[in-house]
């Protein structure tokens, strides 16, 4: 039992990423309003990006910027800097996420102009009528 508790507590950040991801997935599936669905999508994306960024963390490491002074006077140890590879990959993912959000909001606006609603059940009823 104490082993299990230690396993859960020592990885608390991973558990919270899973919780955030499931909140986003729940919102995308079961919310009826399209803006709420897009907020859920944003939460889902940022939780995955957070997971990848947290992989690059090292204990007692600083930000991955090499000081000019250090290069000249001492050797550079890779253990002293956080891993920058996941950061660079996730930088692209953030920009792609905002582009997706913009397209989604544009589609919502078009739907509102054509059908006068942004709620899914009302929209489906309106589509059935016409």
């Amino acid at each position: 039992m104490t082993d299990l508790m230690e396993f859960v507590v020592s990885r608390f950040n991973y558990w919270i990423y899973v919780v955030l991801m499931m909140i986003g997935l729940y919102a995308m599936i079961s919310k009826r309003n399209y803006v709420k669905k897009l907020i859920g999508m944003t939460i889902f994306q940022t939780s995955i990006i957070l997971f990848y960024v947290s992989i690059g963390v090292k204990s007692n490491a600083t930000i991955p910027i090499v000081d000019h002074h250090d290069v000249v006077h001492s050797e550079i140890l890779v253990d002293h800097y956080a891993n920058p590879l996941p950061h660079v990959l996730m930088l692209t993912a953030i920009v792609v996420g905002v582009a997706t959000l913009g397209v989604g909001l544009a589609v919502i606006e078009k739907i509102y102009r054509q059908h006068g609603t942004i709620e899914e059940p009302e929209l489906l009823a309106d589509v059935d009528q016409t």
């Binding site: 940022t46 990006i49 960024v53 947290s54 690059g56 963390v57 490491a61 600083t62 930000i63 991955p64 910027i65 956080a82 996941p86 950061h87 660079v88 996730m90 930088l91 953030i94 920009v95």
Partner: peptide, 10 residues
Amino acid sequence: MGAVDVAFTE
């Protein structure tokens, strides 16, 4: 977490 570039983009 030390990801300053990701932080200011966000």
